[in-house]
């Protein structure tokens, strides 16, 4: 007997090229059967030495009849998967739009602008609990290192770029609602929530800010393991200059951040 989860993963992989239907539909009561019997039949077929027999299903992915399952071909089985809980470790980069403006005295003009955050300078973890195949709640933590380039235009010395810019370390906490569609091969999702960010630049007291966070992504499950790769995009606009965001007087009112992360995601809990 192969583990149920392993079996389902294999079946899901085999169905990747088939038309994709909502996973939840595979468990639709209207089909008259859950996915459990299918797996059971597959297991039985394997135990009989026949490997995985193609399984006939109706358009919802559920077996039409036990007789048909035994001899008919293809179609996907459990469609996409979903789990009660997920935990992910992630790493990525950020495109940051944060112009701190400029300040001048009688000798020079000082301006500053944030660099984009390189891959590896943005990392963290997320966890989610799903109350249904479609909806879940997510909490996350990321840590980000942002560099600010400093530029001096001096009346006498000319243009001077600092060797060392400012380094800002941020801890971000997010809570979000997630809506997903667990298809057979991938699970696209959208999220919306709120993010709290605590940042610190050397020499300054930490400061906090917050903003709505919008996200979207795709989870691609591994075939042989209860895990997936997650490609995630988040957009956030932190408003209002405060703390180091006011480093240079006249800076713009906030930061616009687009974060791309790659994560490995572990899934827990029985699927329905």
């Amino acid at each position: 007997m192969i583990p149920r989860r392993l079996g389902s993963a294999v079946v899901a992989l085999g169905c990747a090229a088939l038309p994709l239907f909502p996973a939840s539909a595979s468990a639709a009561p209207a089909a008259g059967a859950s996915r459990k019997p299918i797996v059971g039949l597959l297991d039985a077929a394997r135990a009989a030495g026949g490997g995985y027999a193609p399984v006939a299903t109706d358009r919802w992915g559920a077996a039409a009849t036990p007789q048909a399952q035994a001899g008919m071909a293809p179609v996907f089985a459990p469609g996409g998967e979903w789990a009660r809980a997920e935990a992910a470790a992630l790493i990525g980069s950020q495109r940051v739009n944060q112009d701190l403006g400029f300040s001048r005295n009688i000798f020079q003009t000082v301006s500053a602008e944030a660099d984009d955050v390189g891959f590896g300078e943005h990392y963290g973890a997320r966890g989610a609990v799903f109350v249904s195949p479609y909806l879940g709640l997510e909490a996350g933590y990321t840590r980000t290192t942002t560099m600010f380039d400093i530029r001096i235009e001096d009346e006498d010395a000319g243009l001077v770029l600092f060797d060392e810019g400012l380094v800002q370390k941020s801890n971000e906490f997010t809570a979000a609602a997630v809506a997903q569609v667990a298809l057979a091969a991938v699970t696209p999702y959208l999220s919306v929530g709120y993010g709290w960010r605590e940042s610190e630049v050397e020499g300054d007291a930490p400061f906090r800010t917050g903003a709505l966070v919008f996200g979207a992504g795709i989870k691609v499950p591994f075939p042989l393991f209860p895990a997936a790769i997650a490609f995630d995009y988040r957009f956030v606009r932190y408003g209002g200059p405060e703390g180091p965001l006011e480093l240079v007087e006249g800076g713009t009112d906030g930061a616009t951040i687009s974060a791309l992360t790659l994560g490995i995601l572990f899934r827990f809990g029985e699927r329905d």
Partner: peptide, 13 residues
């Protein structure tokens, strides 16, 4: 000597 700028911020506490 030429006007010279130290190419980093100096933090004062």
């Amino acid at each position: 000597f030429q006007v010279t700028i130290l190419p980093r911020f100096v933090v004062v506490r």
